[in-house]
Design a protein around this nucleic acid. Structure first.
Lengths: 265, 265
DNA sequence: GAGATGATTCCACAGAGCGGAACTACTAAG
DNA sequence: CTTAGTAGTTCCGCTCTGTGGAATCATCTC
């Protein structure tokens, strides 16, 4: 066959997840819609949906299929796979209160940044980047904080895999420019995002380290007109540094006596 | 073949999810451990893990595999698949504050109750039943509130599927007894759980209805020695009823103008 | 009732997933 | 430095299973 595509992944599993992704995007949808969208036979689509429904990962209401609530469980399992992740939550809440802006905890997986906690302060901008959201690391303050404290080799791999696509007018799209930026971040201990991810949105972040490696980053984001001057460049960062410092102590301490954290099914 | 098991589900998809479930329970695990546990050939396991890793639903660190953070996204999609679910969150928070106990929002899917929001009040009992947790409906206050406002036919189906297993000393394990109980719940508008799910734990819940059907239930749970008397039987229920009432108004109103809630990938 | 639409079941075929065996990469030990 | 031993990866042929098309069934609509 000519179509020796990507690599040899299991096609059936891919198809099942394609259907799940379709449901994620479409919301409640009918079988034929999904089959059309993915270019699958209706019989095939039907069997996948049947299987996924048996597994409770798809719900069905009449002739509408939608994503199953069992995924809440797996999502939760992901969010708590490292005890450090849960420890970050109160600090995110505190930062949201102190700054009044949106505070986040972001970690890296497969070269992307994933929002694990999001708290909105009193005057924070509206939703849109909720928990679970995936972003490129090169164009966000949290991402740069993480990259700055990752081995150069790993950074290269990530950039190879995802490139440096432009998301906003100030996005850093040049590799060397990014390396310089990461050097600055390392020196200052704080990363800034000046409308690099979304126009009109600034952000700043600090890494949370364990054993020298960044396990994630604490970040604060808000409209660029409000996040400016000393508030943006000094005051907010020092709040985050204080939080990160405390968090790092918890995380490091807990990793010694972590055995009790295991949760059995 | 003799083994015409359950029905004809897609075996490959089942296997992939079995591996995911194994990772969920084991935490970081090595390939051979997973293969052993599931009775699969290592080569097969390897291919599944490879595929799931390409999809970013499995992460790999050296020779340890674990659940991927991308599931946080699907979990979030499940948690927000109905806009009503998000509207419940502030009410849960308020109930947790007012009562000081653990407050929850539970919905039904595939005949099980799923915790979508959990907030712990100042003196609430420690974790263990977090977001995403799945419980039988017959043995919890929230479950009974939901069942009481579901069509009899649906209740039968659910009981057929899941039975009435005993979880604690007071669990209702008799079908007719449960029907009587549901009738009481309908009359009072409130459901109670007196150590039916976990010994030492009481709970109470009210349904949240839309168009006559229960979309979920608001519940409060706490140690049986603290949840007693008027506080348990009147005061807490009236707080919940007030919250549910307000929530129902939001939910019903929002369902008219819901088109703007759609979130695009 | 007839017609259309969509979901479900049936079926035959070939492609895809499977397990066993061979191979490679690391460690540990002697 | 060599030799086992362990765990992960790749290879390969077989067969079984997932696939799409067609036929059937269920629901609405006009």
């Amino acid at each position: 066959m000519a179509d020796r595509n990507d690599n040899d992944a299991i096609q059936t599993t891919n198809t099942s997840f394609e259907i799940i992704h379709a449901l994620q995007e479409l919301g409640p949808a009918r079988l034929s819609t999904i089959a059309d969208r993915l270019g699958l036979a209706e019989s095939t689509t039907h069997r996948h949906l049947q299987t996924l429904s048996d597994l409770r990962y798809v719900s069905r209401d009449g002739d509408r299929y939608q994503i199953g609530l069992r995924f809440a469980r797996l999502g939760r399992a992901a969010q708590t796979r490292d005890p450090a992740y849960e420890m970050a939550k109160p600090h995110v809440q505190e930062l949201a209160e102190e700054t009044g802006e949106r505070a986040q905890f972001v970690v890296e997986d497969h070269g992307l940044g994933i929002y694990l906690h999001v708290e909105t302060g009193s005057r924070a901008v509206r939703v849109g980047f909720g928990v679970g959201r995936q972003i490129h690391l090169h164009s966000s303050s949290a991402g740069k904080a993480i990259l700055a404290h990752s081995p150069r080799e790993r950074v290269d791999d990530i950039l190879d895999q995802w490139g440096l696509p432009a998301h906003a007018t100030n996005t850093i799209t040049d590799r060397d420019a990014l390396y310089d930026e990461l050097e600055t971040v390392r020196e200052r201990g704080v990363a800034f995002n000046r409308e690099e991810h979304v126009d009109g949105l600034n952000g700043t972040a600090v890494p949370v380290k364990r054993d020298g490696r960044a396990v994630g980053a604490l970040a604060v984001a808000g409209p660029s007109h409000r996040l400016t001057g000393e508030w943006f460049e000094d005051e907010v960062p020092s709040m985050m540094l204080a939080a990160a410092n405390e968090l790092e102590l918890n995380v490091t301490y807990a990793s010694d006596a972590s055995s009790t954290d295991h949760i059995v099914e």
